Structure formats: C-alpha cells, structure tokens
Computed example of a mutant assay.
Amino acid sequence: MRFFVAHLAFSLSVIAALVFSTDAAAQEVEQAMIKQGLVDVQKIDPTILVELKYSTTDNFVGKDVYGDLTRAYMQPMAAKKLASASQYLQSKHPDLRLLVYDAARPRSAQWNLWNALPNMTENERQKYVADPRKGSIHNYGCAVDLTVATKDGKPLDMGTKYDFFGELAYPSRENELLKAGKLTQKQIDNRQILRTAMRQGGFSPIEFEWWHFNALSREKAKMAFRIVD
C-alpha cells in the first residue's frame, strides 16, 4: 500500500510538471505577443469564437504547430476592426458568429508551415504561405484566417475546408466554378456573408484563400510593427 501511494504521488508530480511546462511554453509565447502590444481578440469582443487550427492536428501540416497557444492575438487596431466586423455580422445575421482559425503567428511557426510544402516551387508556395524571410502579415499580427459559424460553433459550408490548396478556394474564380458546378450558390453566398462583414470592418480579402483577410498591407504592417518571433 505504501509503495502504491508513493508511486501515485510520483506519477502525479510528473503529470503536474508536464502541465506546468506546457503551460509555461504557452505563456511564454503569449507574453511575447502581449509585450509587443498585441491583444486577445476575445477580450475585445467575447462573442468572437476561436479555434486555432495550428493548435490542433486539423490542418494541412497534420500536426500541432502552436502547442498550447489557443488564444487569438492581434494588433489592437486589427482586433478593433475584427470586433467591428463581428458587430456588423450580428446586426445582419443575429444567429451567426465569426470563428477565428488563425491570427498572430510567430515566425518560428511560419518556418514550419513553409517547410511543410517542399514539393512546390517557391512561387507556388507563396500563394499559400508567405516566405518567413520576408514575414507574413500574420507575423505582424495584422491578418486573420476565419469563417462564419452558428452560435454553437458549427462552420457554414464554404465549399472547401480551411487551408485547401487549389482553385476551389479562390475567391477570384467563384463565378467560373459556379458555372462549372464545382461550387454551389449557397457556398458562394456563405463566403459573401463573410467577405461583406470583413470589408465592413476594414479588412481586405486576397485572391487565393476565402478565409484570409488583411487589416493592413505587408508594407504598412512592416512600417508600423515588429514581427512576432
């Protein structure tokens, strides 16, 4: 019995140490973001939903890239724009919410994503993952990946999953894809709900990903902020 109690106490101490170490790692990343002035978007607008895909295995890498970082951080001006987009969405669609998949991204994670696409040419890779040497707008805390979901977090059908690499995800090809029967009108309408809300908030979409929006251009972000390492 004494051996069992001692063994149990040792096991619990190991578990506690592991929890502490992973929490400490997450806190280190978050503290670095906070130190650079970034804010938790849910503290600006608690109705925004967050599911950081790179903190799960449900992403194109197939593994957890962020560890225990589960909060979405952005520059204050970008977070305020996101809150404005959220308010607009709810004014038009009270039962819908913004669901954030990615926000500020450390450059170390940018290298992991960049290196996960070794079979593409450099030009092809840059359609989907910015060159870490130049820095992604995510690295400055001025970009967000997201979708629209119900209040309980069920994403609307956008025609592809998040991080789908191919023309089905291209906003620029939607009319053509609709005519070809590769996207439905409902899927495009759902994307339009997202784009309209984000534009109202002051964000700009991009050509190759329906989920990605920029609060600033890379040039302006570079002038105003430092990369999160």
Rank of each mutant, 00 (worst) to 15 (best):
K63I: 09
A17Q: 10
M120E: 07
T160E: 02
K154C: 12
Q126P: 02
P118H: 04
A180H: 01
T147H: 09
D95S: 11
G141L: 04
A109R: 06
E28W: 13
G62S: 10
V19D: 04
M1T: 14
K222H: 13
K151S: 15
M74L: 11
Q27L: 10
D229S: 12
D145M: 08
A72P: 00
A149C: 03
R97Y: 04
G37E: 05
L156Y: 04
W114N: 13
N190M: 00
E176H: 07
E122L: 14
E30R: 12
W111I: 05
E30G: 05
E219R: 15
Q110A: 14
M1K: 13
A104Q: 04
Q187Y: 02
A143Y: 00
K127T: 13
L194G: 03
V29R: 05
I137L: 06
A130H: 03
T196W: 03
D58T: 06
F203D: 05
K92M: 10
P132M: 00
A78W: 00
S84P: 05
V29W: 03
P171N: 10
L156M: 09
L82D: 06
D157R: 08
L98D: 02
S91I: 06
V50Q: 07
G37Y: 01
V5R: 12
Q27E: 15
P171A: 12
M77Y: 14
V65C: 04
Y140V: 01
E28D: 12
I193G: 02
A6V: 15
